[in-house]
Design a protein around this nucleic acid. Sequence first.
DNA 1: ACATGGATTCGCT
DNA 2: GCGAATCCATGTT
Length: 201
Amino acid sequence: MERLNRTFFERAPETVAKELLGHILVRKTKEGVIKGTIIETEAYGDINDLASHARFGITPRNKIMHELPGILYVYLNYGIFNLTNIICEKTGKAGAVLLRSAEIIEGLEIASSHLKSSKHVKANEFLATGPGKLSIAFGIDRAFNGLDIVSSDQISIEIPKNTTGEFDIIEKPRIGIDYADKSKDLPWRFYIDGNQYISKK
DNA sequence: ACATGGATTCGCT
DNA sequence: GCGAATCCATGTT
């Protein structure tokens, strides 16, 4: 399979978020390879997006959102979960895509063992459904912050060989950002229509 | 130095 | 539908 390159991520987050659907997240661990089809994403913008960490301008935490497109932004949410994002836009302009849900298609047992050793999630058949669970299932923590998904040998995104997999894309407001005032209704959550691995209805 | 609250998930009411 | 778990980035004093 061919992996996504820098150019893919060097665009607006809402474009990247939409186009990532159906691509394959590949994670190489010591135990083996985990692969999953990306089912759901959200886009986060720059200082003008009141739901984005970039809304405060450049701070120590969100500095990375202004850096190289294709690197990972992983942060701790609610003191409990690591959330996985990929940086978008040209260097200097903030933007990121949150990976919210995936359907695991390879390495089910490894992903399952990750969930079982985690205190706050249930290890059911929906291993990577929801951004917190996705990060656990794929073994992504804050040590991955700044890692380059374009060149890393631990993690990559690949273009599926079978391009016959057509699907409809649903665009909806983002989850869990009611505080975001005028930005909260932006249709920047994207998911594959009818797919059962959606984080929320 | 302190107070606030969150890009979640699960279990109980 | 609601609240707890749990911690650190950010804004305020």
